[in-house]
Design a protein around this nucleic acid. Structure first.
Lengths: 200, 200
DNA sequence: TTACGGCCATGACACATGTCACGGGTGGGG
DNA sequence: CCCCACCCGTGACATGTGTCATGGCCGTAA
């Protein structure tokens, strides 16, 4: 019997997947969580065989949960997301995820992926994997990404500078570099593009 | 037998709901669509009893689909959304929707809502309905919303002015009014807040 | 009719932002 | 070692942005 933990902040899809998985004779859903912190707590307590983690969750996202669990448990993690971009896949694999499945796929495939991962295998959505090979790596430097992240909700230059302990001029400099590299002409567009590509 | 059309751009939740609904003895899923335009076409061809429509979809969103179908068919529409805010509910009901269900609810409730709506009743999520009574109506004027919409991706003032055929100064003025009313200090924050509340 | 309040539009001004040129520091190859 | 790339910081300048006072338009109430 494969013991599975489910984590997704959207109740409807979480309960729907749980109901479908419970119909499978060899799968047992042992926990349902609505945020990343709860997923970590339950996974450490119940040590399920597989964790099916949504990427976008409050408190801790799927990648952060995977990193934590890989340090403390033997659970294998599958990351599920609606924004399936090469950059996202890259981050997911770097965190130690054993599976990657976009939400555009049918729910039927979930059980198959869980079985495969539980058996020690890996699963990566073939389309996204193909895209990832056509290197869409971020041209941005680490610090530039920091600045972009710190300003992703429209924070002012001064606020960004304070949270990163930088001079305002430096912040503007980094942002200017980002705008040039991404060929856009406002912070907001840069943030949207970077989120789109999974660089943030 | 209640004949149901399902529309959601996320394949996983669409197929999961379809599978669960097919388990119900009195419900028949006659169509699954991944965008609003397909939903309109299929609904007019198949005349299902109930349409379960996601709000966020490509081409036409759930509200627009509901408006169209209410003019041409007798189908009753239920709108499902992850961003369940009073403003969104208001728009949904104004379009003639017979039901409103946030995705935070469990999938079990979907069948019950469908039965209720098919029987001629209405269903509105009680929590959101209560919030909607504590009038969270948009304080923004029509033109201000236009400007906000036109600039929601970080477009520059000049671009907004061109798309709306306005002088740049006018655009800045409207934005200034918006920032004051929403008590924020950048366009991006205003856009995020307005989207959050369902005003855009 | 006049007066009033709303929405819309405009231009002038102050300030924040993006751009550019520059220099110091650090770490990793040739 | 030098060279190079990257990071951090500064300051001056052009441009974009937010604020304000102002006026036109329209519907409503006195």
């Amino acid at each position: 019997m494969i013991r599975v933990l489910l984590a997704d902040d959207e109740g409807m899809i979480r309960s729907a997947l749980a109901a479908l998985l419970r119909l499978e004779p060899d799968i047992d859903v042992v926990a349902e969580c609505s945020d990343g912190a709860a997923a970590v707590a339950d996974a450490e307590r119940l040590t399920p065989d597989v964790c099916l983690l949504d990427l976008e969750m409050p408190r801790l996202d799927g990648v952060e949960v995977t990193e934590k669990l890989n340090r403390t448990t033997a659970t294998r993690c599958v990351i599920v997301t609606r924004h399936a971009r090469p950059g996202v896949l890259r981050r997911a694999l770097a965190s130690g995820a054993a599976g990657f499945l976009p939400k555009s796929r049918s729910a039927d495939e979930v059980a198959a992926v869980i079985r495969r991962v539980a058996a020690g295998g890996r699963y990566v959505d073939p389309e996204i994997a193909a895209d990832a090979l056509s290197d869409e790596r971020s041209p941005l430097t680490d610090r530039e990404l920091d600045v972009l992240r710190a300003g992703r909700r429209g924070e002012t230059t001064g606020q960004i500078a304070r949270t990163l302990s930088l001079a305002p001029g430096t912040v503007r400099n980094h942002i200017s570099a980002v705008l040039g590299k991404l060929a856009v002409d406002s912070r907001q567009q840069a943030v949207l593009l970077a989120e789109e590509r999974g660089w943030i």
